[in-house]
Amino acid sequence: MVENYTNLIAAVSANSAKLRKDIPEVMQGFNAMAQAASKAGALDAKTKELIAMALSVGARCDPCVGYHAKALVKLGATRAEVEEMLGMCVYMGGGPGLMYAASALAAYEEFGGEKASA
């Protein structure tokens, strides 16, 4: 677990600056994609940031968590909104495992594995 997200995103930003210098076309493309994806449309910016934070949690990306937490504060997300989103992260973090476990058992049975007794 990260102790200080402010320092972490500062360090990542400094390292990203090196990449902007060394591979400018890639970084410009990434930044253009980020701006296009973040632009308000059918979903507002705060909703998009809540989604981005959920994906950050799911991917276990500490710098992403830091950047999106900062953006959520700037966009006025409430603690209740963030906590509800995090509740979904907890649920979905466990749910996919359950779904894949059920599918894995079905595949085992499909290929001739022992079936459950009735």
Rank of each mutant, 00 (worst) to 15 (best):
V90K: 10
V90Q: 10
E84Q: 13
Y100Q: 12
A37P: 03
E49I: 00
A77G: 02
L8C: 07
C61K: 01
A104F: 13
G41Y: 08
V26R: 14
V26Q: 10
K18N: 09
R60E: 00
A104G: 06
I23M: 15
Y91I: 03
A69P: 05
N15I: 02
F111Y: 14
G94K: 05
V65C: 00
A101N: 11
S56W: 01
Y5K: 04
E109P: 01
A101G: 13
F111T: 08
E110S: 15
M27R: 12
S16T: 12
E81L: 12
A77V: 02
P63V: 00
G95S: 14
N4L: 08
Y91N: 08
K21S: 13
I23C: 14
A77Y: 04
G93P: 07
N4Q: 07
G29Q: 08
G29W: 12
Y5A: 07
Q28G: 05
M85I: 01
A11R: 08
E83P: 07
A69T: 07
A104N: 14
S117F: 11
G66W: 00
P24W: 03
P96Q: 09
L105W: 09
V73G: 06
A104C: 06
K18T: 09
Q35S: 14
G76P: 03
Y5S: 05
S13W: 04
E110L: 15
G41L: 04
K48Y: 07
A14H: 10
S13R: 13
M88C: 10
A71I: 01
S56C: 02
S16W: 12
A101T: 09
G41H: 06
A118W: 13
K46Y: 04
A104H: 11
A69V: 11
A69W: 07
G29L: 05
L105C: 05
V2F: 01
Y5D: 00
V90R: 11
R20E: 13
V73W: 11
N4K: 06
P24T: 01
E81M: 10
L75K: 08
